[in-house]
Design a protein around this nucleic acid. Structure first.
Lengths: 127, 127
DNA sequence: CAACTTAGTTTCTCGAAGGAAACTACTTTC
DNA sequence: GAAAGTAGTTTCCTTCGAGAAACTAAGTTG
């Protein structure tokens, strides 16, 4: 668990590391994937639920993003034998393993916002 | 430091968290940013060094990606008074704060690769 | 059988991302 | 003064990501 003590000193550029980072980025890329994952982190959702909750998404994009997430094992798609048929999407246990990454990114993004705000203020006062 | 004990239970979808994650993703997006950051994590580099080391990049893209990284404070650009003038790019202390994210992503991407390989083997043996 | 719901797919379109090659501008070396 | 090295910029072109709207398909209700 104190692997980071070492990690923080090392360069992060061995080609295999970069490839791995890019793989992760690719899987999370696309305008809606992270929002969808976030949405499903609250609990299972059906297609129409996601259409309503993911603000601004169209059915084509939702369908495409869900397919990609499913192919990568991050979410599961279960057809329920209801009438009419409904489809339940859920974060898989594997999808949950993204949490550390997503929290690190949320954390960094939050700090970045604060830093940018501070920089702007500094520039206004200065120039 | 054991914030994660709590974090791992919570959903990650409060709009502000998602916004922060997307901010981070945007800053790291672009085909070459991560490779450039990785490259600079070994030490300072000049424009032509990066052209040589970042395989496949063109001068237009390198210039553009460097500008964006500089705007976000992740790298610094220093004109050296040599003849002919050279320009040194370096990871800033702020750029270094991306390390935890990048290592989490490298880690996850590595595990994902192993998992995908295992899945493929399983499918071949099975069907 | 018309209207509505669920869960998508298809088509058409536009703008952004990215690449190749040529060009700028300055300086040193031969 | 031509060639080569520095650090880019500009132009032109192609491809990819994404959106809007229409359409499919199956079942349900009145």
């Amino acid at each position: 668990m104190n692997k980071k003590v070492f990690i923080d000193q090392k360069p992060l550029s061995c080609p295999s590391q970069l490839k791995a980072i890019h793989d992760t980025m690719d899987i999370l890329s696309g305008k809606w994937k992270i929002t969808i994952i976030g949405c499903l982190s609250f609990g299972d959702k059906r297609f129409m639920d996601l259409m309503r909750e993911v603000n601004g998404i169209g059915s084509k994009m939702l369908s495409k993003e869900l397919q990609e997430l499913e192919i990568n094992g991050l979410i599961s798609r279960t057809v329920q034998p209801t009438k009419p048929v409904t489809v339940e999407y859920a974060l898989t246990a594997y999808g949950q393993t993204l949490r550390p990454i997503l929290w690190e990114m949320a954390d960094w993004g939050h700090h970045h916002r604060i830093k940018v705000k501070a920089t702007l203020k500094g520039e206004v006062g200065h120039g």
